[in-house]
Computed example of a mutant assay.
Amino acid sequence: MQDLKTLSRRAAFAALALLATGAAQAHPGHDGHSLVDGFLHPFAGLDHLLAMAAVGLWSAAELPAGRRLAGPAVFLAMLLLGAVLPQFGLLLPGLEAGVAVSVVALGVLMIAARQPALRLPVPVGLGLVGLAALLHGMAHGAELAVGQSFAAYAAGFMTASALLHGAGLVAGGWLQAGRVWAWRATAGLVGASGLAMLAGRL
């Protein structure tokens, strides 16, 4: 049993190193055109993929059972708002770096959720989730092709994001069942990947 646990830990850290190495190039530029493009967009960039899953994971660890959908709900609302802003010409400078920082922040939130001394008040955590969502939404909205339907594109990435949140909630519930090392490895993966992406975008 001990050998199996050691092997599992090594595999987790190997996955962390592999994903962190490739993370800097994880968000290739592409223009969205349709519902399908919108749906695929969160899966095409590791930054978006990790952020959506991390919100579900954090919500499963930090929020009471009856309120665990609050994290994904806040994220989805702010994600949509962020995607609307570029349609009116509102776009933050250094957005790609900001998205990478948000992934790091979500990794830190995950780590703090299992460390009582570091745990943030839930409203603060939800505020950070909302800020991260705003940045990711702006990145989504900025890649909508000119003249294409925002509604269809938004429906696609909102649906995909909700599915990723759901996957994070399920995985978070599994990781809560005494698998402290697995939780730490997952949180480390999210944070390290965000740092690697940030280094590649500065």
Rank of each mutant, 00 (worst) to 15 (best):
L63Q: 04
Q87S: 15
T21Y: 14
G125P: 00
V146N: 13
G56I: 04
M197G: 03
R179L: 10
G137T: 01
L195C: 11
A139V: 08
Y153C: 06
A182R: 06
V190L: 09
T21G: 11
A77Y: 03
L46M: 15
L81C: 14
V36A: 09
S8I: 07
L120M: 12
L90A: 15
T6N: 15
L81Y: 08
L131H: 06
L69G: 08
A133V: 04
L69N: 04
F43R: 05
D47E: 11
P116R: 05
L7P: 08
L40G: 09
T21L: 15
M1G: 11
A192C: 14
A60R: 00
A20C: 13
G156F: 00
L79N: 03
F88R: 12
H48P: 08
L35C: 01
L63R: 02
V129D: 01
L118V: 12
A199S: 11
R184G: 05
R67L: 13
F43L: 15
A132H: 01
A154S: 12
V124W: 12
A152V: 08
G173K: 10
K5A: 13
G166I: 04
A20R: 03
L80D: 04
A152T: 12
L195K: 03
L118Q: 10
L4W: 15
V170S: 04
L131V: 15
D47S: 11
L19W: 10
E62M: 08
V146K: 13
D31P: 10
G98M: 09
I111G: 07
A167L: 08
M1L: 13
F88K: 12
L79Y: 03
R201F: 10
F13N: 12
H140L: 06
L35P: 01
P93K: 12
G89K: 11
H140C: 00
V104Y: 04
F39V: 01
A73S: 07
R114E: 14
G56R: 00
A70S: 10
E96F: 04
A142N: 13
H30N: 12
G32Y: 06
V122W: 02
G98F: 05
A73H: 03
L120C: 11
L63G: 01
L49P: 01
L49T: 09
G71N: 07
L76F: 02
A145G: 15
A14I: 08
G98I: 07
L63P: 02
R10G: 11
P64F: 04
D3R: 12
P86T: 04
A77F: 09
A133D: 01
P93C: 13
A83T: 06
L163T: 04
A100L: 10
H27I: 07
L35Y: 07
A100Y: 04
A53L: 15
L16G: 07
G127I: 09
S193E: 03
G71F: 00
L4V: 11
I111P: 01
G127Q: 05
D37W: 01
L189C: 03
R9S: 13
P86G: 06
L202I: 15
R184A: 12
A53Y: 05
A139E: 00
P116G: 02
P116C: 07
A133T: 06
R68G: 02
A160N: 00
L7K: 13
A151K: 07
L202A: 13
D3S: 11
A152S: 15
M78D: 07
A26P: 02
